[in-house]
């Protein structure tokens, strides 16, 4: 079963949330960020080239121009490979754990897995981010020493930064699974 809904991120950009339900214990949330827009790509390239031509007219050295070519190419590659995230996925399996995957524009994927025994709760929190105050979803990890305490906070959807309405939808689903998991593990 797959449901897709459109939300927006904190900058007003478009975000698509895909919800796949495999079983009552297993759900997957996929947040697709907008693709690299032609406009920002053109703007970045133009800036680099304008600066390069400016320098070229000043010092009359053609090395500047070839350097500009390399800067644009390497910059684009680096951006696609290390910075630009196309899709963030949160897979929650009640009996197993939570897996977070972010796929970069170049195809690179990085995955983190947290087993259910370590997860204390999933909550929505507020933070001051740049010149904004935003809501974000995070996973609280249990402190192995003190069972009531929280050892670490792992933020989810770090690059997409969806707005509250989207977070609430994901949050409710996660809570449903966590509650089911509690019931079943409580009465074996």
């Amino acid at each position: 079963m797959e449901v897709e809904r459109i939300f927006s991120d904190i900058y007003g950009g478009r975000l698509a949330l895909q919800r796949r339900q495999y079983s009552p214990f297993c759900r997957e949330f996929c947040l697709g960020c907008p693709r690299l827009s032609l406009r920002s790509l053109t703007a970045a390239t133009c800036t680099v080239w304008l600066v390069a031509y400016g320098l070229f007219t000043l010092c009359q050295n053609s090395m500047v121009l070839s350097a500009a070519i390399f800067i644009t190419l390497l910059g684009l590659l680096g951006y696609l490979h290390f910075v630009k995230i196309d899709q963030e996925t949160l897979l929650i399996i009640g009996s197993l754990g939570i897996q977070m995957t972010s796929s970069y524009a170049s195809g690179k994927e990085s995955t983190t897995f947290i087993e259910m025994g370590k997860v204390k709760d999933v909550v929505i929190n507020e933070a001051i981010y740049m010149q904004k105050v935003i809501y974000y979803l995070c996973i609280l990890l249990k402190d192995p020493v003190e069972p009531q305490g929280v050892s670490q906070v792992v933020p989810v959807f770090q690059s997409a930064k969806p707005r509250l309405d989207c977070l609430i939808e994901v949050y409710r689903s996660c809570q449903e699974i966590l509650a089911l998991q509690k019931v079943t593990s409580g009465s074996p």
Partner: peptide, 28 residues
């Protein structure tokens, strides 16, 4: 830096965090 500054409520279970109140409060 997305979690540069954060504060969270210590919770006793999933039912007691601030966020769980969301479901009672038609926010947005």
């Amino acid at each position: 830096k997305s979690h540069l500054n954060m504060a969270y409520r210590r919770v006793n279970g999933p039912g007691q965090s601030l966020t769980s109140i969301l479901s009672h409060n038609n926010c947005g």
